[in-house]
């Protein structure tokens, strides 16, 4: 039986395909662990009460708020953050011909102006990723409902919705099931 412990615990998990270890106090939020301990600052902290969605990542393949999980809860889990969407993406600036490595969602966000300040974008991408894996052919209303999990203050969502529609098509074509 586990002993009461406010002190650090060792956790081991896989993040974006790589095994990572860390020493964390039990109260440390998963998003803070990702950002501060693993240096993965792509997942953003916007509200810490599960409304804004900027911290959304994939936990064992499913989108979840990393501000509403403790790092210790991710012990043994497989996580994917925005940094894992396109690990082969080239370094900025995007030069012509060198962006082929973006994930179709990222490419579509770029094409359709699906971001302005970019702060919600990682959470938006991970939420859209989960949306398309659970519903590969969503209607516009379904996309809007799915994306309502993440707040964006810049775009009015229009470019984002168009991007997700376009990415859905690309992903379907890629799988050859259109």
């Amino acid at each position: 039986m586990s002993e009461p412990n406010e002190r650090s615990q060792t956790i081991t998990l896989r993040v974006n395909g790589t095994e990572r270890r860390g020493q964390v106090e039990p109260r440390k939020l998963l998003v803070d662990f990702l950002r501060e301990d693993l240096g993965l600052t792509g997942s953003h902290v916007g509200c810490e009460h599960g409304i804004c969605g900027a911290c959304t990542i994939l936990v064992n393949g499913e989108a979840a708020r990393s501000c509403l999980m403790l790092a210790v809860q991710a012990n043994g889990a497989e996580l994917m953050t925005v940094e894992g969407l396109a690990p082969q993406a080239g370094e900025p600036p995007a030069l012509p011909g060198k962006t082929g490595q973006l994930h179709p969602l990222q490419a579509a966000f770029w094409e359709h102006h699906g971001l302005q300040c970019g702060f919600c974008t990682p959470g938006m991408l991970m939420t859209a990723y989960d949306l398309l894996q659970t519903n590969p052919m969503p209607s516009e209303a379904e996309i809007r409902a799915g994306l309502s999990a993440v707040l964006c203050r810049c775009t009015g969502y229009q470019g984002i919705v168009e991007a997700v529609q376009a990415a859905a098509e690309t992903l379907r074509a890629r799988r050859g099931d259109r």
């Binding site: 792509g42 953003h44 925005v82 600036p93 995007a94 973006l102 770029w110 971001l115 970019g118 702060f119």
Partner: peptide, 15 residues
């Protein structure tokens, strides 16, 4: 298309 987007889309922004 915006040249800011590459870094922001890949989690490489610098907030």
């Amino acid at each position: 298309k915006r040249r800011e987007d590459q870094r922001l889309l890949t989690g490489q922004g610098a907030y």
